[in-house]
Structure formats: structure tokens, C-alpha cells
């Protein structure tokens, strides 16, 4: 079966992002970019399904500017077979991303679509669920375990207070949580091989999708700073402060 994986180009997770001084946007000048960590987990899961003989082909899709090819190449180096870039310099919000992915799903007819549960830039946690709704597919979000069983996929989900297991009819959408797997590192030979793998480019127009944003960002600002308190000398002083000053124990 065919597996489609979505990968997003985002600010590297080690970078501390700051708003621009005029508050119109975040400052992304000369900032290191990388594949979204949850998307990397999605790629790894798809590649493992291929290694198990469950998946026959893994297609990595990204939406973004031309340079997002880098993140598709990363996915290809990790083991995806081919890439598709939906090229756009516009701001693509989750609903638009879901519509673009729906158009790709219609074209490619994958049995399984795996996405990260959220991207670490917008922290929206929407695209997978929206794609599933638009395509009329079941979803297994925040997955910590995925097992394909015939015409169904069993997904163990991280929910508040524990784990939940659901069975979904294929085709289905899965979004990854942190513990699903530990992504491998791409080897140098695989990075070289990835350069030769096919990568197609499409545009939102070609897919017939209106990507006009629905939300307008009026301003961005740093969060309210919390003032640092005091250092206590020892446990006795700490307990005294908590009892008598803060009165929380």
C-alpha cells in the first residue's frame, strides 16, 4: 500500500524565536530551518512500515517556498521514495494546507496518510484532523503505536490520563505523538541517493485550491515575563517560605 507523509519546514527546535521590534511578525532572518520534529517521526513511521513490507511506496509532501525542497530531501534521505512540493510563498494556514493535502490524496490515493500532530511554529494541531474531515476519512491522532491489520489500522493514542486504542478502516489519517518512534539519522550514502529521487512540484492553482488566509495576525509580542524570585539557602528555609510567606502548603 501507498503511504503519504506530510513534512513541514519550520524553525529548528533549538532556536529561540523572537518577535520583530515592530510587532508585525516573528523575526526569521538568518534562522536555522529544519523538518518539523513531529513530521520527522511521521516519516520514520512510514519508512518502518515499508521495511516491514506493509507499505510499498512512501511519498513525502511538503507545502511551502521552493527551499522546502530541503525538507523533502531530508525525508527522502530517511527512506521516502519520492517527493511532492506544493510550492507557494504565501502564508498557508492549516485549513488551506488540509485542502492542498486533500487534493494530493485524491490524486495519489494513499491507504494511509501520516502527519505530525502539530508544527512547532504555529502550534495549531489541526491539519491532520482537517484533512481527515475533508477527505471523509477516520483519524488516529496523537499516535504512540500504529499497526496495520488487513483493511484496518489499529492506533494507540495518547489521551489525557492515559492511552486509548481505536480501529480505523483504511484509508485513514494518523498524526504522530512524541513516543511513536525515534527517528533515525540519515546516512551519507542515503543523503547522496536522496538527491536522485524524483521530486515533483505543483502549485495551489494547479490543485484548484484557494489558500487565502482566514485569520489575520494583528500583532505578535513576547509573553509577559515572570519575575525571578529569591534563592533559598536550604530545605528548611524553603519549607518555611512555602508555609509562612507563600502559604501554599
Amino acid at each position: 500500500m501507498k503511504v503519504l507523509v506530510a513534512v513541514k519546514r519550520v524553525v529548528d527546535y533549538n532556536v529561540k524565536v523572537r518577535p520583530k521590534s515592530d510587532g508585525t511578525d516573528v523575526d526569521l532572518n538568518n534562522v536555522k530551518m529544519a523538518i518539523n520534529p513531529f513530521c520527522e517521526i511521521a516519516v520514520e513511521e512510514a519508512v518502518r512500515l515499508k521495511e516491514k513490507g506493509v507499505a510499498t511506496e512512501v511519498i513525502a509532501v511538503s507545502i511551502g517556498p521552493k527551499v522546502a525542497q530541503e525538507q523533502i530531501r531530508t525525508a527522502l534521505a530517511l527512506g521516502a521514495d519520492r517527493g511532492i512540493l506544493v510550492e507557494s510563498d504565501a502564508e498557508i494556514q492549516p485549513l488551506a494546507a488540509a485542502k492542498l493535502l486533500k487534493a494530493i490524496v485524491d490524486k495519489e490515493q494513499p491507504q494511509l496518510v501520516i502527519l505530525g500532530k502539530q508544527a512547532i511554529d504555529g502550534d495549531n494541531n489541526q491539519t491532520g484532523q482537517m484533512l481527515a474531515a475533508l477527505a471523509g476519512l477516520p483519524q488516529g491522532t496523537f499516535a504512540s503505536e500504529v499497526g496495520v491489520e488487513g483493511e484496518q489500522v489499529s492506533v494507540t493514542r495518547e489521551i489525557d490520563g492515559g492511552l486509548q486504542t481505536v480501529k480505523l478502516n483504511l484509508p485513514a489519517v494518523v498524526t504522530t505523538d512524541l513516543r511513536l518512534n525515534e527517528p533515525r539519522y540519515a546516512s551519507l550514502p542515503n543523503i547522496m541517493k536522496a538527491k536522485k529521487k524524483p521530486l515533483d512540484t505543483l502549485t495551489p492553482d494547479e490543485l484548484g485550491v484557494d489558500v487565502a488566509p482566514r485569520l489575520k495576525t494583528l500583532k505578535v509580542e513576547p509573553p509577559a515575563e515572570r519575575q525571578a524570585g529569591i534563592k533559598v539557602a536550604d530545605v528548611a528555609e524553603l519549607v518555611a517560605k512555602l508555609k509562612n510567606e507563600a502559604k501554599v502548603i
Binding site: 485549513l95 484532523q129 482537517m130 474531515a133 496523537f142 489521551i159
Partner: peptide
């Protein structure tokens, strides 16, 4: 924005063809 809310509401937004504003 519990795991139940996060699981369900984006589907609602997509069905209504509107954006979701998260958290």
C-alpha cells in the same frame, strides 16, 4: 484544548469550511 477537544474540533472547522483558532 484537551485531547478530546483537539481531536474533534478541527474536523468541525473543516466541515464548516472555517479556520480554527487553537488554544
Amino acid at each position: 484544548a484537551t485531547t478530546t477537544g483537539k481531536n474533534t474540533l478541527p474536523r468541525v472547522a473543516a466541515l464548516l469550511d472555517v479556520a480554527q483558532i487553537s488554544e
